[in-house]
């Protein structure tokens, strides 16, 4: 249990730093910056208490907000995703979720792909609605959410694939 806590702390810090120092400076194709920090929420161990999980997601979001001057937009999006996660876990992993036996490292790529895509899209839509906050700019919200979402998804899948072997 302690080693789980430890690895979560490491992951939390590493993802925040990765987000703030690298991903926020990427400006891929002019202005696309992936929001890789939500990987923490995506692969947080399933067994853990959901209340503390939602709270940790809030803290994660607020931290990113502080760095990016976005008020509470990241926090709101992260909390929502954390709250809705069980539904999508059930949807994507089916029976494995009922037995609380999900291992993200061992899940096949398609399941992981669907699960990541759905949650990342929800997160990004909420995020961009709150950041842009102007109903005359709906097109900007959609284009930003889709382009950034795609990039985040790609990065999230790459990172999980890269690190999955080592953790065995």
């Amino acid at each position: 249990m302690n080693s789980l806590l430890f690895s979560n702390i490491i992951r939390f810090t590493a993802l925040v730093l990765l987000q703030v120092l690298i991903c926020n400076q990427m400006n891929f194709l002019g202005s696309i910056n992936p929001y890789i920090y939500i990987l923490f929420i995506l692969i947080y161990p399933v067994k853990n208490n959901s209340l503390s999980f939602i709270f940790i997601s809030f803290v994660l979001g607020i931290l990113i907000d502080v760095f990016m001057d976005t008020g509470g937009a990241h926090a709101a999006a992260s909390v929502t995703v954390a709250y809705m996660r069980p539904v999508f876990l059930k949807f994507s992993f089916g029976a494995a979720y009922e037995y609380q036996a999900i291992k993200f490292n061992e899940a096949d790529l398609l399941t992981r792909f669907i699960y990541f895509t759905l949650l990342i899209l929800i997160h990004h839509f909420i995020l961009f609605i709150l950041i842009i906050f102007d109903n005359s700019k709906a097109g900007m919200v959609v284009s930003n959410a889709l382009s950034t979402g795609l990039f985040t998804l790609f990065l999230a899948l790459t990172l999980t694939t890269l690190f999955s072997r080592k953790e065995k």
């Binding site: 709270f55 607020i62 907000d65 509470g72 709101a76 906050f133």
Partner: peptide, 17 residues
């Protein structure tokens, strides 16, 4: 819990705007 935290962050966002 979710609602409280969501409302807090929503309030922060509107404040920032």
């Amino acid at each position: 819990m979710f609602l409280i935290l969501f409302l807090i962050s929503f309030a922060l966002t509107t404040q920032a705007h």
